[in-house]
Design a protein around this nucleic acid. Structure first.
Lengths: 190, 190
DNA sequence: CCAAAGACTGACTGATCACTCTATAAAAAT
DNA sequence: ATTTTTATAGAGTGATCAGTCAGTCTTTGG
């Protein structure tokens, strides 16, 4: 692993454990096994490091999701894939997922550029637009559907990590909660 | 307003705007109109101030909810009241609500005692237990119902603050999302 | 009315920390 | 082969900040 990645990995680990303030750059450098100055060779400021870490993590998540979604399948299948795979990714990359949330409630969020945000939400925004346009969703504001979806995902994640379930039980919870969610936001007739 | 309250109000305002790290105690004291040392007369450490602020805010929210819930009404009515009033409170006390979430993703969360947590969740835990026991809820784990409920509340709040709606529109969204939520977690036959 | 306790002040301090600077070594470009 | 660029190091620095301290003012209880 090259030094830049070592630094990012060390920063992630320490930020999650001690918070942004509680983690001096000197400790990050030490944990990464590089000199103090080397950290500032790769990241001009501590804030650059924090924001850079956030963007890379989001890129990883989005890349993973894109690799799992089959463009040919139905909207429901694609949405279920995103829901399921987001949770699976989050369960495997717990520090990364915690960091995302930690970052969202920090003043550093304001430092993310509009285009970076657009890049990160393109996939989700596209699917939601499709659902509304095709009248599969109930006639609710898109933004509302989006936030409900996102927040339920976070909620189910919290449940999964705070209860130590077997892989199959986890899968079952994920499946069941998707059904609940889908019934809630779509016009189904049964 | 006494000095302690001035300090707490100043701390809340500055923490929300600049984060915990970005807010020196000296600025809090200045904003509160007290001397530096006075802050440490009321709160032994900066962390004490942060945790103290969190606990007071939660007490306010819980007190407000308790005053609104009528013990004689049905479970559905009581849950709807809590859902609605939580959102109304959050909309009026935006800094306070943001602070709660900011605090949840900070290392200071670990400093809250088990009994304080119990106090803060008693009301909600009681209602959930009642719903499960009376078979009104679907046969899902209580914890799962609880997190889904909580996360939807946060999600709808996010939607309400990021879209500037009229009071009546807000009420409508709150009512509609409660119906969706209630349908999702209960065994209804219609 | 007095003494003790508590509230309050703000200058001060020791520690910490983000970041710089100088130097050297390695790699790439010419 | 030589210059230029990039990578790495780590000691050093100026600023900042949480928390202290020694003392003054205010309240309260006897």
């Amino acid at each position: 692993m090259d030094k830049e990645k070592e630094i990012l990995a060390a920063a992630l680990k320490l930020f999650v454990e001690f918070g942004f303030h509680g983690t001096p750059t000197s400790k990050i450098a030490k944990e990464a096994g590089v000199a103090n100055g080397t950290l500032f060779h790769y990241f001009k400021t501590k804030e650059d490091l924090i924001v850079g870490l956030y963007i890379r993590i989001k890129e990883n998540l989005n890349g993973y999701l894109l690799s799992k979604v089959d463009d040919q399948s139905t909207l429901e299948t694609r949405m279920k894939t995103i829901y399921e795979e987001s949770l699976q990714w989050a369960l495997i990359h717990r520090d990364e997922f915690y960091f995302i949330q930690q970052f969202h409630f920090s003043p550093h969020l304001a430092k993310v550029s509009a285009e970076d945000i657009e890049k990160q939400t393109r996939l989700h925004v596209g699917l939601l637009g499709e659902g509304v346009k095709s009248k599969i969703f109930k006639s609710l504001p898109v933004g509302l559907i989006g936030t409900i979806l996102g927040s339920q995902l976070y909620g189910v994640y919290q449940y999964l990590v705070s209860n130590d379930l077997s892989a199959s039980k986890q899968k079952q919870v994920i499946d069941e909660t998707f059904v609940l969610l889908w019934e809630m936001i779509t016009n189904i007739k049964q």
